[in-house]
Simulated scan of single mutants.
Amino acid sequence: MSTSIQGYSIFGYGDMITDRYRIDPYIQALKAAIKPGAVVLDIGTGTGFFAVLACQFGARKVYAIEPDDAISIAKQVAIDNHCADKIEFIQALSTQIDLPEQVDVIISDLRGVIPLHQYHLAAITDARQRFLKPGGVQIPLQDTIWAALVCDPEYYHKKYLSPWADAPHGCILTANRQFVTNIWHRHRIEPAQLLVEPQVWTTLDYTTDLEPNVKATRTWTIDRSGTVHGIGMWFDALLAEGIGFSNAPDRPECIYGNAWMPLTEPVDLAPGDRVSVTLQANLIGEDYLWSWQTQVTAGADPQHVKADFKQSTFFGEPRSPQSLQQQSDSYVPTINESGKVALTILNSMTAGKSLGDISQALTQQFPHRFATVAKALSYAVGLTQKYS
């Protein structure tokens, strides 16, 4: 129930488990998939909820994978539910492990607000290729992502105009708008706020090999007047044949919410106007870079471009000339003191030294930074946990 490199809080796990609109279909799909004696892989087990249910439904063995320290709670949960002997907990990313056998069922929920989230697609593809028996069952099977134009003046003003365009207390803050209008948010969209019929942006079929990057253009012809403030996105989940759920605006609200991507400026639309939106998601490093390009042309005069916006989360973060220079392929980096500290720790790990020895070395080499062994140890633990 978590794939994130930065894990959920315990309250977050609780919110996911108590979201009946989401959890009930998952339980139904899991119960239908597990046959007596089945072997199950639970990717992102969190605090062990699905792993325990799998045992209760008849699984012989469950491999429960979770990179977060919440796995320590999952082990106690398994003991409390008298199934610890059937569950093998592994604290790692699923892509970094091997299993001694293939499995009959893979269950996961590695999504964020929408399914394109961190290493979700890579993890699912890898697990299916390496761990799933021929004819085995995957949960979920498919996610369909939708997009639509949204009118929400109140939310737009709150997030993207005030305080940036309202000069609060006489202070002009308009320079911030170029950044905030390139940041998307989790925001509940109401059905009445949709200006057009939603269109499918993409379908993710988890039974096939999926590329992490997605790009598609969708175009709407407007049939009624209104003002568009942003683009809304959500998904329909197919967990098993006939079993699923949706976080669409016309369905009960669930834990995921909706994705909301603002336009640079609101645009007044008239019947006959055409709105073309190119949505693109590229996995870069540990997360996705999102881009959305919106062009509005007048119905009466297709050559008349009413709006042409090019937005991206890349532009949502201020970058100084110095930081941009440091990202150039011609830049020659030099190691700073933090880098030297990290290098000392990594070299010590390679040499097989203990944390105590590493901490002593840090206090000797960087005495102005680590006044005590305890401070050095605290720093070393944080880095060694990431790379050990």
Results as ranks from 00 to 15, higher is better:
residue 181 T to C: 09
residue 162 S to T: 15
residue 128 R to T: 02
residue 95 T to S: 10
residue 150 V to E: 00
residue 202 T to Q: 10
residue 120 H to A: 12
residue 134 P to T: 08
residue 200 V to S: 08
residue 104 D to M: 03
residue 183 I to S: 14
residue 222 I to E: 04
residue 138 Q to P: 00
residue 197 E to K: 14
residue 131 F to I: 05
residue 137 V to P: 00
residue 197 E to I: 14
residue 185 H to E: 15
residue 152 D to V: 07
residue 143 D to F: 04
residue 138 Q to A: 09
residue 143 D to N: 08
residue 214 V to D: 05
residue 147 A to E: 06
residue 187 H to A: 11
residue 136 G to K: 01
residue 212 P to R: 03
residue 116 L to Y: 07
residue 136 G to T: 01
residue 160 Y to L: 06
residue 138 Q to V: 04
residue 136 G to M: 04
residue 108 S to M: 14
residue 171 C to V: 15
residue 124 I to Y: 07
residue 169 H to F: 15
residue 184 W to T: 11
residue 183 I to A: 12
residue 113 V to K: 01
residue 104 D to P: 00
residue 200 V to I: 14
residue 200 V to L: 09
residue 194 L to S: 05
residue 123 A to W: 00
residue 96 Q to R: 11
residue 124 I to D: 07
residue 181 T to K: 08
residue 160 Y to H: 10
residue 193 Q to Y: 01
residue 159 K to H: 14
residue 201 W to M: 05
residue 157 H to I: 11
residue 142 Q to V: 06
residue 110 L to G: 05
residue 179 F to D: 08
residue 178 Q to Y: 07
residue 147 A to W: 03
residue 136 G to E: 01
residue 216 A to D: 08
residue 168 P to D: 11
residue 160 Y to V: 04
residue 147 A to Y: 03
residue 139 I to F: 02
residue 96 Q to N: 14
residue 176 N to G: 15
residue 212 P to H: 02
residue 120 H to Q: 11
residue 183 I to V: 15
residue 132 L to V: 04
residue 113 V to S: 05
residue 169 H to T: 12
residue 214 V to E: 13
residue 146 W to M: 10
residue 210 L to S: 01
residue 111 R to N: 15
residue 128 R to L: 04
residue 121 L to K: 00
residue 223 D to Y: 09
residue 204 L to N: 01
residue 209 D to E: 14
residue 108 S to Q: 12
residue 188 R to H: 13
residue 106 I to A: 02
residue 207 T to S: 13
residue 170 G to Q: 07
residue 120 H to W: 06
residue 107 I to W: 00
residue 201 W to E: 03
residue 144 T to Q: 07
residue 123 A to H: 02
residue 151 C to I: 06
residue 94 S to L: 07
residue 130 R to L: 09
residue 104 D to A: 01
residue 169 H to E: 14
residue 135 G to E: 06
residue 167 A to T: 14
residue 183 I to Y: 12
residue 218 R to I: 09
residue 124 I to C: 10
residue 199 Q to T: 03
residue 166 D to C: 13
residue 195 L to V: 03
residue 100 P to C: 05
residue 138 Q to N: 11
residue 109 D to W: 03
residue 195 L to A: 04
residue 115 P to G: 05
residue 140 P to L: 09
residue 195 L to M: 06
residue 99 L to S: 02
residue 185 H to N: 15
residue 193 Q to L: 06
residue 210 L to P: 01
residue 132 L to A: 01
residue 127 A to D: 04
residue 100 P to K: 03
residue 185 H to F: 15
residue 104 D to G: 01
residue 96 Q to C: 12
residue 102 Q to I: 08
residue 183 I to F: 12
residue 207 T to F: 06
residue 105 V to L: 03
residue 201 W to T: 02
residue 204 L to F: 06
residue 196 V to I: 08
residue 141 L to M: 12
residue 168 P to T: 12
residue 183 I to P: 08
residue 164 W to Q: 08
residue 101 E to P: 06
residue 129 Q to E: 14
residue 217 T to Y: 02
residue 207 T to E: 11
residue 135 G to P: 03
residue 107 I to M: 07
residue 199 Q to V: 05
residue 175 A to F: 15
residue 141 L to S: 07
residue 113 V to G: 03
